[in-house]
Computed example of a mutant assay.
Amino acid sequence: MWCDNCLLVLPLRGGAMAWAVFIALYSIAGGLFLIIDGGYLFFELDEWYIYGGVGLAVAFIALINILALSNRSYIWTRVCKFVWPFLIVISAVRAILMIVELQRGKDDILWECQNGGQHYSSNTTITTTTSDSSSSFPAGFCAAGFSSIYAAFIVGLLIDLVCQIYMYFMTWRFQKRLEHYNAMKGPFAGGYYNA
């Protein structure tokens, strides 16, 4: 017997909506962080914009999923069920690339921490540190150390993948429930189940 919503106490629809809100919130926060401060962690051809864009795409599909669940929309639920596997694969590729690029940029990140939060540039001209905190490497990352940042990224990316897979499972279960209810007969001519 399949459980409708194994991890949450709420019923399938309410639990799926709560899970989608959770995914949307952390995906928006992570996507914006990567777009704003990702240049201090990744150094190849503005790749942090792509990583942040994938996070925002996940948040967008989670928001569509919330609307589909709240309206009990069969069509939009099927759209979300169709899109989630692609986003899960793209997020898995993104996770692998982010982990590899963080490891490759370890020395550059350490250089940024040792030089007052200046943005590392492979060019001979290096940007100067200003008093504006928005234009320097976040101090909390330097205090935590590279190994802590690296472990946090790995754990966070794995949790993200597990959350997305579980959201896909709940979307699939909700779609099957909608199909089941659509196949049931009404209260007339033999009752709901026509048993």
Rank of each mutant, 00 (worst) to 15 (best):
F174Y: 15
I75T: 11
Q164M: 14
I28G: 08
F22V: 13
R94E: 05
H180W: 09
F82D: 06
V100N: 10
L67S: 14
F43H: 14
I35F: 06
F153R: 06
I36C: 10
V54Y: 05
I90T: 11
P85M: 13
N115I: 01
I35V: 10
C3T: 11
F141P: 02
L7M: 06
L87A: 08
P187Q: 02
S122A: 12
I66A: 00
A95S: 14
I159T: 12
G156N: 01
A24M: 14
I90L: 05
G52Q: 04
N5E: 13
A92Q: 00
F153N: 14
G55T: 02
T128F: 00
A143Y: 15
C163Q: 07
F43Q: 11
G190K: 12
V89C: 05
I23S: 06
L158S: 13
F137L: 01
A144R: 00
I149M: 05
G156L: 07
L157T: 10
F153Y: 11
M170D: 01
N65D: 03
G30A: 15
E47P: 02
G31F: 10
G53C: 02
L25M: 13
V58S: 12
T129F: 09
K185Y: 14
F153K: 03
L97N: 05
Y49H: 14
L41V: 08
N71V: 07
D37Q: 14
A144F: 07
Y181G: 02
Y168V: 06
G39K: 05
G53T: 04
L34W: 08
N5D: 09
Q114I: 08
Y40A: 01
A16N: 12
F153D: 10
Q175K: 03
G191H: 04
A59R: 00
N5G: 01
F86C: 01
W19Y: 13
V79T: 14
Y192E: 10
F42V: 08
L41H: 09
G30H: 06
A195R: 03
I88T: 02
G14H: 13
I154R: 08
